[in-house]
């Protein structure tokens, strides 16, 4: 099933993200997904996230699908040229994976193979364009595909609390023009900035899923403030996490904060995307507290 069908029906679509392991044992990931992500409609599978080599996104998507979950195949342009990307898209369609999230990808320098070649033959925009071409029955070289072409729900990302929001909106528009049908956002901690962004983004008429990362500690919040693009955790949230360290460690504070953000932003967006970063077990209580 395509996630876009749910948006069309007016559903508030909730997805969560899982990261494949550095190895071939996937049982733990599947067990966690089945146990904790029951209340979630779709599961994003990251593609060598942060440029760290791991089990493939496509294989993990297939394993999740076999367990009855709805996977979203994250596809980055960092590691593959246009031939490999198109081939992997055809492979995905053949396996019945029809939700794709097109990303440029983090730079190689952020990962664990710093001497690798950064490919970036395409980028998020030209990848979306490429998917549309395949859907029209032709590859990027202008050659006809044999038989029925693939059809995907095409997602993309945007960073609503970025310090260069106008530039982000311009890129979002480019993605829409290239074929993006829905958006997932970078983690949001400043609802007022998100709402302001949505006021500007609604001109594109595409559903947007609010991005949420549950805060694990004050240290994590500070680390993200210093290092992660498009994220700013306000000081009062950091103080809240500091106030009761045990409560924060147990995940109670992080879930409370996330639930508040969701409640505040929900009227302005069309869905929710949770990046649990190992805290998949907190997802059910988050959804409950947020009233979803």
């Amino acid at each position: 099933m395509k996630i876009t069908e749910l948006f069309e029906r007016g559903e508030f679509v909730v997805s969560a993200e899982v990261g494949p392991p550095k190895g071939i044992h996937i049982e733990h990931l599947l067990e966690e997904a089945k146990t904790y992500l029951k209340g979630v409609t779709a599961v994003n599978v990251t593609d060598n996230q942060s440029s760290v080599m791991r089990l493939g996104s496509l294989a993990t998507c297939k394993a999740l699908k076999d367990e009855g979950l709805l996977p979203i195949y994250q596809l980055t342009c960092r590691d593959r040229n246009r031939i490999a990307l198109q081939s992997d898209l055809l492979s995905a369609a053949m396996l019945g994976i029809d939700n794709v999230l097109a990303l440029t990808g983090d730079h190689i320098k952020l990962g664990d193979h710093k001497g690798a070649k950064p490919v970036f033959d395409l980028d998020s925009v030209s990848l979306l364009h490429t998917i549309c071409k395949l859907e029209a029955g032709e590859d990027l070289g202008g050659n006809k595909l044999v038989g029925e072409p693939p059809k995907f729900a095409k997602g993309a990302v945007v960073s609503p609390c970025s310090d260069s929001v106008d530039s982000q909106l311009a890129k979002m528009e480019r993605k829409v023009r290239a074929g993006a049908e829905y958006f997932q956002t970078q983690a949001v901690y400043e609802p007022e900035k998100f709402i302001e962004f949505m006021e500007k983004a609604k001109q594109f008429g595409k559903p947007v899923q609010l991005g949420i990362v549950i805060l694990k500690s004050a240290g994590m919040a500070k680390f993200m403030n210093d290092n992660v693009a498009g994220i700013h955790v306000p000081q009062d949230m950091i103080d809240e996490l500091k106030a009761d360290k045990e409560k924060a460690k147990a995940g109670i504070t992080g879930v409370e904060i996330a639930a508040r953000i969701i409640k505040e932003c929900k009227p302005y967006c069309q869905g929710l995307h949770i990046m649990a970063l190992g805290w998949e077990s907190k997802v059910p209580s988050l959804l409950e507290q947020a009233g979803i």
């Binding site: 440029t104 950064p118 693009a229």
Partner: peptide
Amino acid sequence: SKSLLNGQCGGAKNGKCEV
């Protein structure tokens, strides 16, 4: 740093490149 042709990636922090 990624030689992108279609606009910025989401990696810049405070106007600086992620690399």
